[in-house]
């Protein structure tokens, strides 16, 4: 019993860490889906880019870990603005099929570029000493890195929610998600709003990819392999919602960790089956707003 409780705590802790990373990465996709109706399957490319920025900064330069994290956020956000302005914006009015194909094309290109630059092996994460080892908490030892990760993700999530609920930008995003023509008619510059929001969402994905580099291995096929989890988070959580994807990401985090721990022979089978069942029950997701 003691051992079971101990492993339960451990699973919950690791699940929480994974779930929060998943949320930080996917929330941008949830918002861009809700705001622009854009099915960006290439969202994982931003997370992978963040991961590579962090791992190569730590490996090849002497910049400190927090600076590398910040770099992952800002560089990915800036890069995504270029992509958004030059390519994505052309397809805002296009059909879903075009968006899907276009972003699959981007994934393939990104996979190829990553393989050319970084090879096929998983990128090593050279963490600084102060976040290695164990951290005592509530009379137990927890991996310091994951404690750090949960804390940073939590802070990012809090800042994001505060931003959406309390700032002018957030008010505009909420208005545009609810009713885009109305938002435009009251003078919101939706084009700039899209760009800004897209950059923020991509930046967060980059940060999430960097933060989670220890948990989700950074390697070239990352955007393909992780895609299904982002889609689950957004579809199950509900597009255009902030809370829903968090619940969905944490559910995946906990169940994936638990299944890997107790039922490794089934892989992700139960997650997919549960997702299918859940979406049959609620096609718009847990917190979905409208069709």
């Amino acid at each position: 019993m003691e051992a079971f409780l101990s492993s339960l705590v451990s699973v919950a802790f690791h699940g929480l860490a994974y779930g929060m990373i998943l949320y930080v990465i996917s929330v941008g996709l949830a918002v861009t889906m809700g705001l622009m109706g854009f099915a960006n399957l290439a969202h994982g490319v931003f997370a992978m880019a963040g991961g590579y920025i962090l791992t190569s900064s730590l490996q090849h330069t002497s910049i400190p870990f927090p600076a590398a994290l910040a770099l992952a956020f800002f560089a990915v956000a800036a890069g995504s603005v270029v992509l958004e302005r030059t390519l994505y914006a052309r397809l805002y009015g296009a059909g879903e099929l075009e968006q899907v194909l276009f972003t699959i094309g981007l994934i393939f290109m990104a996979v190829a570029v990553a393989r050319l630059i970084f090879g096929t092996l998983q990128a090593p994460v050279m963490l600084p000493d102060y976040i290695r080892g164990q951290y005592p908490l509530f009379g137990r030892e927890f991996p310091t890195y994951r404690v750090f990760l949960i804390a940073v993700s939590g802070a990012m999530i809090a800042a994001l929610w505060f931003g959406v609920e309390r700032t002018r930008w957030g008010a505009m995003v909420r208005a545009a998600v609810d009713n885009r023509p109305m938002a435009q008619s009251v003078g919101i510059n939706t084009r700039r709003l899209f760009t800004l929001t897209f950059a923020l969402g991509s930046g967060l994905a980059g940060l999430g990819g960097a933060l989670g580099a220890e948990i989700v291995a950074v390697q070239p096929t990352y955007p393909l392999e992780q895609l299904v989890f982002y889609l689950i988070v957004v579809a199950v959580g509900g597009q255009g919602s902030l809370r829903g994807p968090l619940v969905a990401a944490l559910l995946i985090g906990f169940s994936d960790t638990a299944l890997k721990y107790w039922l490794p022979q089934f892989g992700a089978f139960f997650i997919y089956v549960a997702t299918i069942a859940l979406l049959l029950w609620r096609p718009m997701g847990l917190f979905g707003r409208r069709v």
Partner: peptide
């Protein structure tokens, strides 16, 4: 891989 990705983007 890069080529087929690029072709897909160009086709779209």
């Amino acid at each position: 891989y890069f080529g087929i990705g690029l072709i897909l983007v160009l086709v779209v």
